[in-house]
Simulated assay, not measured.
Amino acid sequence: MIFKGNTQDSSKVGGTATHIKVINRPAVSGTHQTFKEQVLGGSEFGRESNLTTLNRDATTPLLQVLGKNGIDYATFAQVANQKTVRVVPVNGATPDAGNYPYKRQLYYAYKNPPSQAVKDFLGYATSS
């Protein structure tokens, strides 16, 4: 697996022979933690020389360091409309498909009883 450092050449995963540059999000990132749990099965990321962990969890700097041979994981909404990257399907499914295997649930938490501002926000957030 690329993110564990086992595969460092893109020819091993169907590409042309190029060294793969892995860009990792910092451990404090929720996306990092979810990827580690769901994709790596709780295992650690590799420590190979081709893996760079960013200091802060921000998409724009991440996209800037990818280059032509970089790979990263991201929240779909962060990269869906980016022109400089492409989303790689997993088992033929893209993140906007119902059968995409990697998803995380996010929740809103609020103190009961909710204030009117909270009610208004929840109404907006759950509307079409």
Rank of each mutant, 00 (worst) to 15 (best):
E44Y: 07
F35H: 01
V22K: 15
R104G: 04
V118T: 15
N24G: 12
G70K: 08
T75Q: 12
L40E: 03
L63M: 06
G5K: 03
T60Q: 14
L40G: 05
F121C: 06
S10N: 06
T84Y: 05
K4E: 13
Q105T: 10
D120Q: 11
H19I: 04
A17S: 14
V13Q: 11
L51N: 05
A77Q: 15
Y100L: 04
V87E: 11
G92W: 06
V13R: 12
T75S: 08
A27C: 07
S128P: 05
N81E: 15
A17Y: 06
G15E: 09
A80H: 15
T126A: 05
P26V: 08
V13D: 12
S43F: 02
Y110W: 05
P26N: 11
K4Q: 14
P101F: 08
M1A: 15
R47I: 00
D96V: 13
T60L: 10
P26W: 11
V85G: 14
V28K: 07
D96T: 11
V28P: 00
P95D: 06
V85W: 12
T75Y: 06
T60W: 04
E48D: 13
F45A: 01
Q78C: 08
K12G: 03
H32Y: 15
L106S: 13
S127A: 15
P101E: 04
N99G: 12
R104P: 01
R86Y: 07
V13T: 13
A77W: 09
S115I: 00
A58P: 00
L40N: 06
K36V: 09
P113R: 00
T126G: 13
A125R: 02
G67H: 07
P113C: 01
V13S: 12
N50F: 02
G70V: 12
G42Q: 07
G98S: 06
Y73S: 05
R104M: 08
K83E: 08
K68S: 09
K103W: 00
Q78V: 04
G92A: 07
A109K: 01
Q33D: 11
Y107M: 13
Y110V: 00
T7C: 07
Q64D: 12
S10C: 08
Q78R: 09
L62T: 00
A97T: 08
A74Y: 05
Y108N: 04
E44H: 13
N6S: 07
P114Q: 00
F35M: 00
Y124I: 11
Q38N: 10
L51E: 06
P89V: 15
K111S: 02
P26I: 10
S128C: 13
L54S: 01
L63A: 03
L122H: 04
T16Q: 15
V65F: 10
A17H: 11
S43V: 00
Q64W: 05
L122I: 11
E37F: 00
A58F: 01
Q105N: 07
A97F: 04
A125D: 05
Q116R: 04
N55I: 01
P95V: 04
S43T: 04
